[in-house]
């Protein structure tokens, strides 16, 4: 499913005197099959944006009490924000938002804090039960839960009857992800999926996401503030700053704008930093800024061999 966002703006406390923009005129298209990254500071609007994609924040035109403004002759018609995801129109009151939520899964920051059920299997089945239109049989549920738990790299028979609170932090996060992907969403959105994990845990989670991207969810969107994570993993990235969309391009092009990113207060990946230092010394290296490619290019340039 393709995501098409047009003229998306959002204000906090729209009635209060100190209303503040969280999003201003965002236009963005995410194609099916992308591994998309969203970068930005805290407060840049990235989380607000992501919550729109799942209709947790509804567009004004989708609110029950919405009435279109009367347009006087000679005046331009007001432009309402619009979001289309596949065939779903998020600006339409009649859209089945529940069904949409089963197609667009969101894993929030620190998802392990949303676990609640007595056993892992029951917790993973929570979303499945909520979304299914007809009651699922015991076997069907069990099979789907097993598939999801195994997809996140856990041993089904070892964890299914365990309490989710007895698991380790990394395992809890995997269970929480399983609880979202169990409905086979076509689009999977993760808010800071690697937050609070050690480097090894981070790499494992990222590997898991690539596995899911290949086999389970067509589109994966990750929200992050870690440039290295974005440059290593994403096909395309959007940069949010002060409620606006500043850039939207593949990381290999994005980090050519290193200076601008730094003025926005964002870090650039280590590889981009080294490339800049080399450039100062007169050594030009063209790379897509992933570690592997960068090392190879540098070694090519200096005439060594990769080890």
């Amino acid at each position: 499913m393709r995501i098409e966002v047009k003229h998306l703006s959002y204000t906090y406390h729209s009635s209060a005197p100190f209303s503040a923009y969280a999003l201003q005129d965002i236009n963005l298209t995410i194609e099916e099959g992308e591994f998309f990254g969203i970068i930005g500071h805290t407060g840049s609007g990235k989380s607000t944006f992501v919550q729109h994609l799942n209709a947790l924040i509804k567009l004004p035109t989708a609110e029950k009490k919405f009435k279109p403004k009367k347009v006087r002759k000679g005046q331009p018609a007001p432009v309402y924000p619009s979001i289309r995801i596949g065939t779903y129109d998020l600006g339409d009151k009649k859209t089945d938002f529940k069904e949409l939520r089963s197609k667009v899964g969101i894993v929030f920051q620190y998802p392990e804090y949303q676990l609640f059920a007595e056993t892992v299997a029951l917790d993973v089945a929570f979303g499945l039960r909520n979304f299914s239109k007809t009651p699922l049989s015991q076997e069907e549920t069990e099979e789907k839960v097993k598939e999801a738990i195994e997809a996140v790299g856990l041993d089904y028979h070892a964890v299914k009857d365990a309490s989710p609170f007895d698991l380790s932090g990394g395992q809890k996060r995997r269970v929480a992800i399983a609880g979202v992907i169990v409905t086979k969403p076509e689009i999977l959105i993760l808010d800071e999926p690697a937050a609070g994990l050690d480097p090894l845990g981070k790499r494992e989670i990222m590997e898991l996401l690539h596995r899911l991207h290949a086999s389970w969810c067509k589109t994966v969107i990750i929200v992050s503030h870690d440039m290295d994570e974005i440059s290593e993993n994403c096909t395309r990235a959007a940069v949010f700053s002060a409620s606006r969309l500043k850039f939207c391009m593949p990381p290999s092009e994005l980090f050519l704008h290193a200076e601008e990113l730094e003025t926005l207060g964002l870090d650039i990946p280590v590889t981009a930093k080294i490339q800049r230092e080399l450039q100062k010394l007169g050594v030009e290296v063209h790379s897509d800024f992933t570690n592997e490619d960068f090392v190879r290019r540098v070694l090519e340039r200096v005439g060594g061999t990769s080890c």
Binding site: Q51, N54, L56, K98, R101, S102, G105, I106, F108, P111, Y113, Q114, F116, A117, F126, G127, N130, F131, G179, V180, T183
Partner: peptide
């Protein structure tokens, strides 16, 4: 935050009978 996370997993807090709403609070 937790309500949003459970809503994303299909939980509904505004619909249904009093009993099912009370049950929806558990997660």
């Amino acid at each position: 935050r937790i309500m949003n996370a459970q809503k994303a997993r299909g939980a509904e807090f505004e619909r249904g009978s009093l009993f099912s709403r009370a049950k929806a609070v558990i997660p």
